[in-house]
Computed example of a mutant assay.
Amino acid sequence: MVSITDREDDGSRRSPPAPGPRPWIGWLQIGLSSMLAVLFLVILAKTREQSQLLMRLEQRLQGLENSRALDRTSVLEEQQRAMVGRLQTLEAGAQRLQALEQQQDAWRSALADLQGRAVRRPLLSPDPFPAPESPAASPRSDGGVLRPPAPPSP
């Protein structure tokens, strides 16, 4: 039987003792930690750079949108000015037309007045343009007798 206190016999059957901490494992851990820290800083720098780039792009986009809006506003203002000009021309034409209609109404009433006066006033002579008297129809000094005109000779 083997006793527990016999170490000499047990040593041959056991695996070799575990070696102590190796120095390269510590350096490996430090290297990996450093590499992770550097990668974190690189990612952080890239994120900031992309954020700044996005801000610049947003500003450019806003500028383009403002420029387009300004162009549209300018076009609309120009169209509005043209429309106002046309409306002013139409209003002036309407005023001229109204003045002409008033003048026409005045002329119509004046014409009606003239026609009404002509109907109401009796004519002094039925012929407005009487023919001059012929010497044959004039009274003679032979006693005041009027004689009919002589028949025309053929």
Rank of each mutant, 00 (worst) to 15 (best):
I25C: 07
G116K: 02
Q104I: 06
R81N: 03
A92T: 02
R7Y: 11
R117V: 07
Q115D: 04
S12A: 15
P17C: 06
D6C: 02
Q62D: 10
L90H: 07
L90A: 15
L124G: 03
G93V: 08
R72S: 13
V75H: 03
N66E: 14
I43K: 12
G20L: 07
M35S: 15
L57A: 10
G11Q: 11
L124S: 12
M1Q: 15
D127F: 02
S15H: 08
R56V: 09
S134Q: 09
T47Y: 04
A99R: 12
L41G: 02
A118Q: 05
G20Q: 13
Q80I: 12
T89S: 11
A45V: 08
P128K: 00
M1T: 14
S34H: 06
A18L: 11
R121W: 09
Q79S: 13
E101N: 07
Q62E: 08
L36N: 07
S51K: 03
Q98S: 14
A94S: 09
A69N: 06
P128D: 00
P149E: 01
P130R: 01
G20T: 07
V119C: 11
A137W: 01
R7G: 06
S138K: 11
Q115I: 12
L36I: 08
Q102N: 15
W24R: 09
R48E: 04
R72F: 14
P154S: 08
P132M: 02
E77V: 08
P23Y: 00
E65F: 03
Q52K: 10
F40W: 14
L41P: 00
M83G: 05
A106T: 12
S3C: 11
D127S: 06
W107K: 13
R120K: 13
E78W: 04
D10W: 14
A150T: 04
P126Y: 01
M55Y: 11
M55G: 15
L39G: 03
L90K: 05
A150Y: 03
R56M: 12
Q29V: 13
D142P: 00
L53V: 08
P130F: 00
Q102T: 12
S141W: 07
Q52A: 13
W107I: 06
R48I: 10
R48V: 11
R22I: 05
E91K: 01
G144P: 01
Q80N: 15
G116Q: 03
N66M: 11
A112G: 12
G116H: 02
V2M: 15
P139V: 00
L44F: 09
A18Q: 14
S51V: 12
D6N: 05
A136P: 00
G20K: 09
R108G: 06
A112H: 13
R68D: 06
A106K: 10
P148A: 05
R81Y: 01
S153F: 04
M83W: 11
M55D: 15
L39R: 09
R13Y: 11
L28R: 03
Q80H: 12
S3G: 10
D10M: 14
T5P: 00
S141A: 10
E65Q: 12
S67A: 14
D142E: 09
G11S: 15
G144F: 00
E8T: 09
A131S: 13
G26T: 04
E8Q: 12
R86I: 04
L90Q: 06
L124K: 05
T89E: 05
Q59N: 15
Q88V: 05
Q98D: 02
L54V: 14
D113L: 11
L54F: 14
P139N: 01
P122F: 00
Q98Y: 04
